[in-house]
Design a binder for these strands. Structure first.
Lengths: 217, 217, 217, 217
DNA sequence: AATGAATGAGGATTCATTCAT
DNA sequence: TATGAATGAATCCTCATTCAT
């Protein structure tokens, strides 16, 4: 999924034969980007030196600067790109699911599924606050805005009392927080490939249902 | 408060006159530690070089290694120490409060109050995951354990059905998550001295009450 | 003046329409050369990278090496070309002036006039000693030779005792020196557009005519 | 001479045995400085990399930054130090010489003598305009001021008409120029150890005394 | 115990030049 | 002829750590 939607994607045309100049260039940019994702995912931003990234990408150090203005420039693009990929992934998995709580449950499961296949995201997401603060803030504001709109619509559809913008925002941050910390505890610490315990999902749903929509079951 | 409880504390005895050898040594260790808190709080772990810390502490660079095995060694002690301080602060504020929800509300308020007076904590807390991962994990496990015990007791006292260990743990992480993200949004981003909006507290309570203990209202 | 005499000059023929192969090529060479003059004049030799020169000239980096063997190759041509332009400019202004001292005065004024309209020359002239030493030496030897011939002729015409070659040469260097340092002090340091103070010209003439302690004048 | 007066000087005390910390430190600073003089003198500022300077000084690269804030910082100190050394040298040689013209002659000879024993000065003096422009300007302003005072006094003593400040300044720059260009032609180009031709000195004196076309002499 | 000088590896970035297109 | 992507060496500077004093 990510491989066809993300920045790793191969251009549909010319997948065989010598690529044109333009395409070859784009491939190299992507090679560097992907190398950075790998390096940051494995070692963290702090150890993602240009030397390491270019070695991983199998290009010369100087080549890096043909595609990115500076190390920071590339680092700043990591979260936006992966974040967008993740959002698209979740959106797709949630679309078509009916019911407020069910949708929220699906969001959590999709988040874990995404992290499972793109384990690099965890580090990028968490370290971005330190190493790419602007992008980090923007990322969360974007997701929060999405969430606020979705929640408002969900409440309306369910015929429930409207919440103020402030309440919706706080709710959005709490939900983002919950899935983030749960991913820390049950994905990151647990190690890759580890299953998300069903009891955790149930607890999450329980709180969402009881807290958000009143009648806990 | 923190100043009397934290590692900055002066020993009651011998506050005047030439301190004993042992005390003088302890003072120096603390001077370095406090300097590190200041530097990391202001500039982040990444820029907390030994040179900067020792300059701030007004000791020679070499002195650092008489008290800490390495830079990492000191960095690893930052979160445990501040975390303990914070926990003690919150515990004190919550003790004596009656009612489940009221205690939880008080926990949130105390957390914000602590961050407001010790703004360094935010950075240390967040960056520790990157720069002192062991300490970070231990920190959260400790708090989670505290939380699990407190929740179990609270549920028992309220005569509610017992939750499994797994459920309690997930709940604990969600609550820690919530206050963390709320502090990011409403303290860190808002700027120091900014008030925590009342609507945010109400939203938090609402979720806690409705979700955690069943009868939202 | 310089624009019609210098290397920037457009060929009289074919100023319109598609230029011949040969001319187009020559134009490109000149574009690169002029770009180099601009870049070196503004930023100095040290910052005159091939990238900057070609950007300024609006050609690709690789194109540079079709016209110049190396960066140094072009740099070496800067002073000879500008120097020739300058000499022609001064020669024209001095021609027709009668009188030894008057001619020398005119030379100084012409030098300042030239620098005023081609401010790049100052930098190129001064930095060439470091960055294009061969060209620099040749430049001064050429001017000195010119000077020696002119002085010999002037002395002869004035019916004065002949000077030895060695004396004439030393004299030439002193005169070149004087106008160079005066341009440093009263043009370069003073800023562009600044007038050459009349007292300076008078001092120069005074010395030329009667020496430091002479009473000529 | 320079070796006992310049920054290369050994402290009088403790020339034997293990030096004190303070002295050892000062020695190292000097070693780096002297290495820089050598490197810049031989290869020019542009090639005076920190690596080359520290290699020459036989210290590690990092050591450089214990003594100088940056490469530029050291480079900026080169001319002031050598310039001061040179001035002292000339002053000493001229002191005690009677007669206006005789003093001026002595100044020229001393300049050549200094350059002969400190050939590095030539490059440092000339390239400083490009690589340490502030120091270069200051250097010439200082010398010019010295010169202006000396000339005013000389004129006064000789009972000659006073010159305006502007005239004195222009004169000073012309004299500095003359000796500079003569050193270029008859020391730098000629190669080290080459004798200053007597005819050149005579020409200089001739011009000083009676101007170009005067009959003084 | 305390100092601070010394080290050298490792960091990001720029550059002249080459060469396949 | 013209392009511009690619290279990798060289640049300055910072740093954690060691160790003689």
């Amino acid at each position: 999924m990510a491989d066809t939607a993300g920045p790793t994607e191969q251009p549909a045309a010319r997948r065989r034969g010598r690529p044109h100049r333009r395409e070859a260039s784009e491939q190299k940019r992507r090679a560097i980007f992907d190398a950075a994702v790998k390096v940051v995912g494995r070692r963290g931003y702090a150890e993602a030196s240009v030397a390491r990234i270019t070695t991983q990408a199998k290009v010369a150090q100087g080549t890096f600067y043909l595609y990115y203005k500076s190390r920071q420039d590339l680092l700043d693009q990591l979260l936006p790109a992966l974040g967008e990929e993740m959002l698209a992934f979740i959106r797709e998995r949630v679309s078509g699911v009916d019911g407020l709580v069910e949708r929220e449950e699906q969001r959590l499961r999709a988040f874990f599924a995404y992290i499972d296949q793109r384990p690099e995201l965890y580090r990028i997401l968490h370290e971005a606050e330190t190493f790419a603060p602007e992008g980090h803030k923007r990322h969360y504001k974007t997701i929060a805005d999405d969430y606020i709109r979705a929640l408002a619509r969900d409440f309306r559809r369910a015929g429930m009392a409207a919440r103020s913008e402030a309440e919706l925002e706080a709710t959005a941050y709490i939900l983002m927080a919950a899935r983030d910390y749960l991913s820390m505890r049950y994905a990151h610490w647990a190690g890759q490939g580890e299953q998300l315990p069903e009891a955790v999902v149930q607890t999450y749903i329980h709180i969402v249902r009881g807290g958000l929509f009143g009648t806990a079951g």
